[in-house]
Design a binder for these strands. Structure first.
Lengths: 255, 255
DNA sequence: CATTGTTCGTTTGTTGGACAATTGAAATAT
DNA sequence: ATATTTCAATTGTCCAACAAACGAACAATG
């Protein structure tokens, strides 16, 4: 007979797995304060340093959180915690604009359609405010890309689908910054962002009307335009993205 | 006037950020061996413990890897490393079957369509083998869900879009296991998985023919069927998923 | 009375040094 | 040349200590 390979894990990994299991099983729930590092070390029968290494792992998956120097508590992992890592993974794998565009073509129109059915007055107001701000940025001649990113996030959030939000987030983080290059590119200097803003207006109107089909269709045209701009600029769809596009991990809250 | 919050980071975080920056900037590339912990500690002017905590963070994002007890090297983060964490995040946020289904309705048909244009002979052979295995499982009366999951992954890989692959992976990891409940549910016992297998056959044929429209359409029907089954079983689309569905992080390679 | 300073116990962040276990490679024996 | 035995290098873990930051409670200040 033969024995299977023994799964020998370093102690710090066992520590993180053990705590993780308690959280996933629901015996520890969001907001619960964990024991202090010293207590954990005593309970597990290991050194505090080993516990600390385990904690570092848990923090990375967003299962626990600590606000600088304070006690550790259980948290619900938020997609925003994980999306930057995904974006970096894509950059390192030299994902192309075409790949991002294809996914956006699937998810963004769909998000708009769902949003039409589910949007509330509050978020609609935020979208209208975004339109105003975009018009102002346009008039002032500053970049509208950040506002464009915000627009698409608002629409996606209005779709009330967290799986969708999570799926599109890392794509968005790379997709829209890639457009910055577009609007500052010499060959597209003549291209007015007017068309982009008009599409946004149409989409918001459709959302306000609750018209899913129109919302979907305008979003589709809007995403198609991005690709068209890319072509017009003479950029190669199949070039890898600029590594500088990788978003920085946001600093932890510190209050 | 008001001052901005000071960005004071713990040393271990500075360590991980610094190494990360070198990797992202391309000054360290995949396969490079990092200095030993002691050397890093000397170079940074901190203790080895502090370096180790920083390393734990980098390992989690997949940027560096270490095979148990050996030197640290730079790695390309693979989506497989990150997807489980995303799945867990969704479970903890009590994502519903409806949300997963909506995203699948967007991504799976699209993946099939792209695959029709890009699939190679090798992967087509794998898909055919999957069909055979599924028929056998069906005849033997064992669960076909694992094979179903494998089928959809093969199709998605054939689409040659890593952003798509990354976006759908965490959804898939939860979606298909949820179907296990379906086929073992008393109310759907009469439902034959025959329909599922037929759809798979149609899709593979369409891929072999390079017919994107047919591939997309059959995949669409296939995903619609899942929802229909869910309704038939009398399960509530808007119930949170079973927490037990959260996939375990796979143990690290250890050779 | 609101703000500022003081003190104190608790907890995290970081350091130092130590050692067993494992690994990779060099040196030795067969 | 191949197998075996050292041996130095490196990781994983431990123990002990202290500085820094925080929370709270309370005194002092204007």
């Amino acid at each position: 007979m033969a024995f299977a390979r023994l799964a020998i894990l370093p102690t710090y990994k066992v520590v993180s797995d053990t705590i993780e299991r308690e959280i996933l099983a629901g015996r520890l729930t969001a907001g619960d304060i964990l024991p202090t590092e010293t207590e954990l070390a005593d309970q597990f029968g290991v050194t505090r340093h080993t516990v600390r290494e385990g904690i570092r792992i848990l923090e990375q998956s967003g299962l626990v959180r600590r606000e600088a120097g304070r006690r550790l508590y259980v948290a619900e992992p938020h997609y925003g915690d994980l999306a930057p890592r995904l974006s970096r993974a894509m950059v390192m794998q030299r994902v192309t604009f075409r790949e991002l565009w294809e996914v956006s073509m699937d998810l963004e129109p769909s998000a708009a359609a769902h949003a039409a059915a589910r949007i509330d007055a509050n978020r609609l107001a935020l979208l209208r405010a975004n339109l105003v701000a975009t018009e102002e940025a346009l008039a002032a001649g500053v970049s509208i890309i950040p506002l464009d990113v915000a627009f698409h996030i608002l629409v996606a959030e209005a779709a009330a689908n967290r799986a969708l939000l999570l799926a599109r987030e890392p794509v968005t983080q790379l997709f829209y910054p890639a457009l910055e290059r577009l609007f500052t590119h010499p060959k597209t200097a003549h291209l007015s962002p007017r068309r982009l803003v008009d599409a946004h207006h149409r989409i918001v109107e459709a959302l306000a009307d609750g018209d899913a089909d129109v919302a979907r269709e305008w979003m589709r045209k809007h995403i198609v335009d991005f690709r068209r701009g890319y072509d017009t600029a003479g950029l190669d769809l199949d070039d890898a993205l600029d590594p500088a596009a990788a978003p920085p991990a946001r600093p932890p809250a510190r209050r």
